[in-house]
């Protein structure tokens, strides 16, 4: 138990002292995950809405595929991206392996299906309520997409948060494609794994606390925005 309390005290010291290696790691983590979630939302929201509204051959396959891909293991995604980006792979010429960009690519692949699948569900439900009115006004599914995404915004925030939760918490994909290189691709989750294996529990615990606090504050902020604006819009 003393181990734990020592580690805890040391962790608080690191956090409060704004330890440089700590801030660097936290900064990179946020940069990678937020960028990945932004890109995934940019792709996943319209794709999810399109799957919800359009009837096309193979739609069933898309629905099942996005749902299935929601649960894709990060290490598998990491491995796929690793193969694609490695020197011998199709995108090897870009030299992206073991860079933050590679980590972003991997997280985009992880998060996009989550956002797309949840968006599909939200938009499908909205369309049930809106369809007749929208078609009466002259908006078929295609023209209705932006309005539906906007009207579903409060619920879609939750979809994006789910994506962010996935991106910020996963370790497998960023470990494989980033390589956990100090000052280059080391993020919170990979350094926690590393520091634990080195026995450096203080830093690991400090990082763990920050990860929890960051995740909690982003969720709290989103909830508050959602709560207040939702009340305003009934």
């Amino acid at each position: 138990m003393t181990d734990f309390s020592d580690a805890f005290a040391a962790a608080i010291g690191l956090v409060l002292g704004l330890d440089t290696s700590l801030t660097e790691i936290v900064g990179l983590s946020l940069r990678v995950s937020l960028t990945a979630v932004a890109i995934a939302a940019f792709i996943g929201l319209p794709v999810g809405a399109a799957i919800a509204l359009f009837r096309f051959p193979g739609r069933f396959f898309f629905v099942v595929a996005t749902n299935a891909l929601m649960g894709m293991p990060p290490v598998v995604v990491g491995l796929i991206v690793y193969l694609l980006l490695s020197r011998a792979g199709p995108f090897g010429v870009f030299g992206l392996l073991f860079t933050p960009t590679a980590m972003i690519v991997a997280q985009v692949l992880l998060v996009t299906p989550i956002i797309a699948a949840l968006t599909r569900q939200v938009i499908e439900d909205l369309w049930i309520e809106y369809e007749e009115q929208m078609r009466s006004l002259g908006a078929g599914p295609g023209r209705a997409v932006p309005a539906l995404l906007w009207d579903g915004r409060f619920t879609l925030i939750t979809a994006i948060l789910a994506g962010f939760g996935r991106a910020s918490a996963e370790v497998g994909a960023v470990m494989i494609v980033g390589g956990n290189i100090d000052h280059v691709t080391r993020v919170m989750t990979t350094s926690i794994a590393l520091e634990v294996s080195k026995g450096n529990l203080a830093l690991a615990l400090g990082l763990g606390m920050i990860l929890l606090v960051l995740s909690a504050s982003i969720n709290a902020a989103a909830y508050l925005i959602q709560h207040n604006t939702k009340r305003w819009h009934a």
Partner: peptide, 8 residues
């Protein structure tokens, strides 16, 4: 319609 559908 019987039940108006308003956008948010």
């Amino acid at each position: 319609f019987q039940r108006p559908v308003m956008l948010r």
